[in-house]
Each structure stands twice: as C-alpha cells, then as structure tokens.
Simulated scan of single mutants.
Amino acid sequence: MTAWPDVSPDVGEQPGVVLGAVTTRLLNSSEPLPLEPARQALALLPDVAAGWRRHPIEQVVSPDLFFSLDCRLATRSGSHPRVIGTARARAVLTAGHVLQGSASTAVVLNASRRRLPWAHYVARTGMVEAINKADPADLVTSFLRTEPGGTLLDLGKTASYVTSLLDRVPQIDGRARLRTQSSRLLWAARLHEGSEPVGEVEAGADGVFRVRLSTPSALLPHFIEFCEVLALHGWLLAAMKNAFDRSTRPGRRAEDEMDPALSYLAHIWNPRAHLPPEVRWLWQALEDEAQLTWEWQSTVTRLRDKVALLTRKAMEETLRKEVV
C-alpha cells in the first residue's frame, strides 16, 4: 500500500524537497465500519480498489487522489516562491473508527523560470515545480513553522478534504458517542541520495507534531508511513486524555465520556503494527524521549480504574437500598 510518491530518476529534474501533512479524526459513526463496507467506502476512484490489511489491526487505504496546485511556499525571507503542479492525497481508516487524510507534494527546484502548459505538470503527478529560486533548507523550516493561509501551500486542508469525502458514505450513521477534535501533523523531507537517513520529531505546544527528515528517495514512502502512524497514535493519546479530563468535570456523567473512549479506542494502540522496519529506529528514539506508550498505558489504566470505582460504588448503593 506504500506506492507513493514517485521520484524516480527517469522523469526530468528531480525533487529536492517533499512536504506533507496528515490530519486525523474520529469517523462520525456509532459503530466501527466493518472491513468490507470500509473497502467500499474508501474506493474513492471508479474501478480502483482500496488497499487493505486485516492483521494485526484492520486498516483500509484509499487510492491516491490528485489535486491541482498553483500557490506560494512559505520562506523566512518572504519571497514566497510560486509553485505549480499537483498534490497527492489518500484516506486511511484504522480499526473502522479512526480516519486520516495524508497529503504530500514533491518540490522540484529551479526547473523553470516561467509557467509551462498545464499538460507538463499533469504528467508529473504528485509534484510541483518552483518558478522562482528557493533554498531547500528554508523551505523545510518555513513549511513546518508557518501557519498556512492566503495563497500559501496548505496540505492540511487537502488532507482534510479527502477525509470529508467519507462523510457522504451511507454506511456512516453520523452518531458518534465520543467527542473528539481533529489533529494535524506536518512533515518535510530533504532528499539526499546515497546518504544515511536522519529524522527528528517535535511535539509542539500547539499540539502539532512536526517531523523533519533527510533521506534517500527510496526510503521516503516508509517515512510517510511513519508520519501516518505517529499522527494516529498522537491523536489516540490526546483523545483518550481529553475523555478522562471531561469525565472529571462537574455536571457530567463520567460514564458518558469513559465508556465510548474505552470502547472505540482502547484496543487500537499498536505503533509497531504497520511501521516499516526501515524506520522503527525513529519511533524508538521518540519513545526513549517522550515515552508515548507509557503515557497511553497510564491514561487507559486511570480510565479503567475509574470505571471500576464507579461500578463498585453503584453496586454498594444498590445493596444499601436493598437493605433499607
């Protein structure tokens, strides 16, 4: 299911930078979407089947969709070079409940100083060409640090649009019992052939994960999967913690928050399940520093302990009434 982006060396000028975004949210459904209906729902192109895997966690991946781009890239200098081409995006549904949009575009630098016919850009799917000069390091840093808006490239918007296509599917009843927020992850990679891959992850105070990479093009699809896995598990952790926090607020029935959180999400955490072996070192480095799995286990334990305590109190209250 990892067939993109294509940056093969036989297609003219090669990209120097690849930019991407992953958005994650809960599917708006009271029950998880079973595998076969999920495959039907994520077949977003006529006559093109969705990819899927059943073990260890069910996951369905839509075919790639392409979106035209004619926009500007963020830079610290403010020059905002114009890029023209297409973005590549797909939807990913995990365990029938967690929906992600993943979008990227590869940036070819110094390819042309003027706009070419549209057929030229369509032939190079998932790529944009910069008309003005741009520094690769500046593009990476600025994409990760600049809030998109106006004419600037906004791959998060593209990723969210792909997930919105699933809202129209008749199998989705629109009655999710768990309130959650969507999340966003940004990643940027510089392509260096013949060099060892390097990556770093930052969990921002704004709740956005930012991943900076330097990698040979052959490993890029694996890093994209890493970013999708990280976005999924970062969202799971935030959703579970938010459910626990809401359960402690006055005026709320704790069960209304905790029961759907445990039912919908507690079984999904398994970051190594779909993580390619080539990039597991990056997840391990993140675990060594942030200990996300420990935090997840601690949060789930707190939720289950609170459910057990409430259940015991309810039983004691029932027995007390029977005695009286």
Rank of each mutant, 00 (worst) to 15 (best):
T2K: 15
A3P: 10
D6E: 11
D6I: 03
P9K: 08
D10R: 13
E13V: 10
P15G: 03
V17K: 07
V18G: 06
L19F: 04
L19C: 05
A21H: 02
T23M: 05
L26D: 11
N28L: 08
E31N: 10
P34R: 00
P34A: 00
L35Y: 09
E36Q: 11
Q40T: 15
L42V: 08
P46H: 10
A49V: 05
G51A: 13
G51E: 10
R54E: 15
V61H: 07
V61G: 01
S62V: 02
D64V: 07
L65W: 06
S68R: 09
L69N: 12
C71G: 01
C71M: 01
A74P: 08
R76I: 03
S77Q: 13
G78Y: 07
G78F: 09
H80G: 08
G85M: 06
G85W: 07
R88Q: 14
V92F: 15
L93V: 07
S104E: 06
S104V: 01
T105F: 11
V108H: 06
R115F: 11
A119V: 02
Y121T: 00
Y121C: 00
A123Y: 05
R124Y: 14
T125S: 14
V128P: 12
I131L: 12
I131F: 10
K133V: 11
A137Q: 10
L139N: 06
V140L: 12
T141E: 15
T141D: 15
S142E: 01
F143L: 00
L144H: 06
R145Q: 14
R145A: 13
T146I: 03
D154E: 01
T158F: 03
Y161Q: 00
Y161D: 00
L166N: 03
V169S: 04
V169I: 12
Q171S: 11
G174C: 05
R177V: 14
Q181M: 13
R184I: 02
L185Q: 01
L186E: 00
L186R: 04
W187A: 02
A188M: 01
R190A: 07
L191E: 04
E193R: 12
G194D: 07
S195I: 07
G204T: 03
F209H: 09
R210A: 08
P216L: 02
P216D: 11
F223Y: 12
F226N: 03
L230K: 09
L230G: 05
H233T: 05
L237E: 01
F244G: 00
S247M: 04
T248Q: 14
P250T: 01
E257N: 05
M258C: 04
D259M: 12
P260D: 01
S263M: 10
S263I: 13
A266Q: 03
H267K: 12
H267E: 09
P276M: 02
V279Y: 14
W281V: 08
W281I: 06
W283Q: 03
W283A: 03
D288N: 11
Q291L: 13
L292C: 13
L292Y: 14
W296L: 02
Q297E: 13
S298G: 10
T299Y: 10
T301E: 13
D305H: 10
K306V: 10
K306L: 15
T311A: 11
R312G: 07
A314D: 14
E317H: 12
E322M: 14
